[in-house]
């Protein structure tokens, strides 16, 4: 019988612990497919964050390192400097990358560190039970913004792609989503592109994936995907924010 669909080699057989309707599974798969397609599994090392994806080290079949909260880009820098011929990626959430690890993110970007950063933005701290994230939307109700995010007292969400594209150095920055088949197809291309850039030695690539958290948003999975479309994407427009291959 012909095999028409199989699990990527870059994923292990470990069952994912993510909540029903969570899009981490899709994003894991897209990363794994890119690794498989590019034939780099044996020379890839991933860095897992602290947050919902903390156990990504059990899910990817490449060598993996678990980093302290927010420090994945620094750890990836060390790995890449020690092994320039290896492919190093980080997989980080919004609290990890845009709050506690903002310095590591910005400086890895401004060094144009030759690594691939997969940034999953679901506008909430999922692992700890739904607290306000640096990317929670204005007015968004969370456990630590029970009356809605009040921008007058806690400030505005951080738009990571816009912020990093103000730097001269980074090679490639794109925001994608995984709330529809069309968006998933775009995300797949973007993630593959981010790995290709590293293989070619181009430098820092970051793909922000606008994601959903049905559990902590208090929505059904379908409703959460709709909310991504209606509320998240208007605030976080999809698109390519930096592409140095297009610059002279």
């Amino acid at each position: 019988m012909a095999v028409v669909f199989s699990k990527p080699k870059a994923l292990t057989d470990a069952p994912l612990h993510y909540c029903p309707g969570c899009t981490h599974g899709i994003i894991h798969r897209l990363v794994a497919e890119a690794i498989d397609d590019l034939g780099i599994l044996g020379r890839t090392v991933g860095v897992a964050p602290v947050g919902c994806a903390v156990m990504a080290y059990d899910y990817f079949s490449c060598d993996m390192v678990e980093a302290a909260h927010g420090r994945a880009p620094a750890v990836a820098t060390g790995l890449k400097r020690a092994m320039p011929d290896r492919i190093i990626f980080t997989y980080q959430g919004d609290g990890d990358l845009a709050s506690i690890g903002m310095a590591e993110t910005v400086h890895a970007a401004t060094r144009n560190e030759n690594i691939t950063v997969i940034f999953v933005n679901n506008a909430i701290y999922g692992m700890t039970g739904g607290q306000m994230a640096p990317t929670s939307l204005p007015g968004q109700v969370t456990q630590t913004s029970p009356y809605g995010r009040d921008v007058k007292t806690v400030g505005y969400p951080i738009k990571v792609c816009e912020l990093l594209s103000a730097l001269d150095a980074p090679y490639y920055i794109q925001r994608v989503a995984v709330n529809s088949v069309k968006h998933v197809a775009e995300a797949k291309k973007a993630i593959r592109r981010a790995f290709e850039n590293q293989i070619e030695g181009r430098g820092f690539s970051l793909i922000e994936v606008v994601s959903s958290c049905p559990t902590n948003w208090g929505m059904t999975p379908q409703k959460a995907l709709d909310w991504v479309e209606s509320d998240m994407i208007p605030y976080y427009p999809l698109g390519v924010y930096r592409d140095k291959s297009k610059e002279a």
């Binding site: 090392v45 860095v47 390192v65 980093a67 302290a68 420090r71 620094a74 750890v75 990836a76 820098t77 060390g78 790995l79 890449k80 400097r81 020690a82 092994m83 290896r86 310095a103 590591e104 400086h107």
Partner: peptide
């Protein structure tokens, strides 16, 4: 903080 985590990366390798 970054410096020690870069060390962590190299040591991992």
């Amino acid at each position: 903080i970054s410096a020690i985590n870069m060390v962590y990366g190299v040591a991992s390798a």
